[in-house]
Amino acid sequence: MTDDDTNPTGDSAQLRASLGRYGVWSIALRSEDPDRRDELADAAAELEELGFGTLWLGGSSSVRNAVPIVGATSRVTVGTSIQSIWQHEAADAAREFTELDATHPGRFLLGLGVAHAQNTEQYRRPYSSLVAYLDALDAAGVPAHRRVLAAIGPRSLKLAADRAAGTIPYLVTPEYTAEARRTLGETALLAPEFKVVLETDPSVARGLARTSLAPYLQMPNYTNNFQRLGFTEDDFTAGGSDRLIDALYAWGGDDRVRDRLEEFHTAGADHVAVQVVSDASREDLPRDAWRRLAGLLLPAA
Rank of each mutant, 00 (worst) to 15 (best):
T167N: 02
I168N: 11
P169W: 06
E175T: 14
E175D: 14
Y176R: 07
A180V: 08
A180Y: 01
A180I: 07
R181G: 07
R181F: 00
R181M: 03
T183D: 10
T183F: 07
L184G: 08
G185D: 03
G185A: 00
G185K: 03
E186G: 11
E186Y: 07
T187C: 04
L189H: 08
L189Y: 06
L189Q: 02
L190S: 09
A191W: 08
A191L: 09
P192F: 03
P192V: 09
F194H: 15
V197E: 05
L198Y: 05
L198H: 08
E199I: 11
E199P: 03
T200C: 06
T200P: 02
D201L: 06
P202F: 09
P202T: 10
P202H: 06
S203R: 15
S203T: 15
G207E: 06
G207H: 02
L208F: 10
R210K: 08
S212A: 13
L213K: 03
L213C: 10
L213E: 01
P215G: 13
Y216W: 15
Y216P: 11
L217H: 05
M219P: 07
P220E: 04
T223M: 08
N224W: 12
F226V: 02
F226P: 02
Q227D: 06
L229G: 13
G230W: 12
F231R: 09
F231K: 08
E233L: 09
E233Q: 15
D234K: 12
D234M: 04
D235G: 07
F236E: 02
T237G: 10
G239D: 06
G239H: 01
G240R: 02
G240S: 06
